[in-house]
Nucleic acid binder design. Structure first.
Lengths: 186, 186
DNA sequence: TTAAAAATAGATAGGTCTATCTATTTTTAA
DNA sequence: TTAAAAATAGATAGACCTATCTATTTTTAA
């Protein structure tokens, strides 16, 4: 028999979907409680304010992002392949809806005033960057720029290409990054 | 004697500042008319809806962006210097407030549903990309990747670094791009 | 079994928003 | 000078928003 989804999870799941797809400010409490089919009192029991719900949403995204990458690259040992697979992961994330990166979106929407949000987003991006620096360090590479600089700029290319996918609604830029980096590290 | 600023311009100037710094959805009509010191009827005479005001804002940003680049790079003839100056321009745009790219922000905030907005933003980004492709074509360059691919990925690095400047509130990533591309095209 | 905890429905406060309308005054051009 | 155009103040419709509150029912554990 199926386990009933707990109220807190129902709230967070619905909020995640709505914050991501229609934006934080576009999403009202009333819509969340209606779609999650829970009482407004329950929502404010679990999350004292809409902002607390936002923080829970971002923490959930952070956790799932790296879990997802882990699963996506599992079994691959060569750093070169892992780097290329990193792009594939970002491509897979964008398809089929091209809604962009939830962390970039929230900063664009509410700015960096809220320190908790700012630190969560900056932390998430730095964690990605560090992971890539590690992979590039393991590479058997002898090119015109050092590994760390290459890693950092590879990260930036992928960021730019992800933004571009959202704007243009296609993955051409991400494919271009893959082509570029393949040439650089082969 | 000083020319009085026309009502339409006062509206657009105030809307530009507010849309950019506090977001489109965070900015109410009432705040715009208060800060522009005009009547609400005047606003709706010049702009039939808030969305029309948004479109005017984006068209103004587009125009000023390329005018600003023109001014910033005037007198420079070597494509290599122009490419490096392109990064300096983006650095200058971000300082001292790090509010990011207005085009990326609006897509993150309202998505790509509105076709006019989507096309304006996509057009703006493509125009930048084409300009860079032209500069890289003129380059005396012999590297591991072809000029077009390098130009496209340089554009993406700058995009990523601009987003990163917004998130981290510093220009380290943009400086890193400059260092990287200098090594690539020297 | 029973007491505490969790969830419910539903009203409401107090504020926001975009857009429209009327009636009046000021500015612009012919 | 005068008629049309532009700008004004200010009210208002009708919808939305977050958060709080009461009173009741359901669920959970000891």
């Amino acid at each position: 028999m199926k386990e009933k989804v707990k109220v807190r999870d129902r709230i967070l799941n619905v909020a995640t979907d709505l914050f991501y797809h229609q934006g934080f400010n576009q999403t009202g409490i009333n819509q969340i409680i209606a779609e999650a089919d829970i009482a407004i009192g329950s929502l404010y029991n679990h999350f004292p304010s809409k902002n607390d719900l936002l923080l829970a949403y971002l923490r959930k995204q952070e956790e799932e992002w790296f879990e997802g990458l882990e699963k996506f690259t599992q079994g691959i040992s060569h750093p070169r392949e892992k780097i290329l697979k990193f792009i594939d992961y970002r491509i897979a994330q964008q398809q089929p809806d091209f809604y962009g990166c939830p962390f970039i979106k929230i900063i664009a929407e509410i700015g960096t005033q809220d320190q908790q949000v700012q630190q969560l987003v900056e932390g998430h991006k730095n964690r990605q960057r560090m992971l890539l620096q590690g992979l590039f360090q393991q590479l058997d590479y002898d090119g015109p720029v050092d590994r760390k600089l290459l890693a950092d700029n590879f990260f930036l290319m992928v960021e730019g290409a992800t933004v571009n996918a959202t704007i243009s609604r296609n993955i051409k830029a991400l494919e271009g990054v893959k082509k570029f980096i393949r040439k650089m590290i082969s």
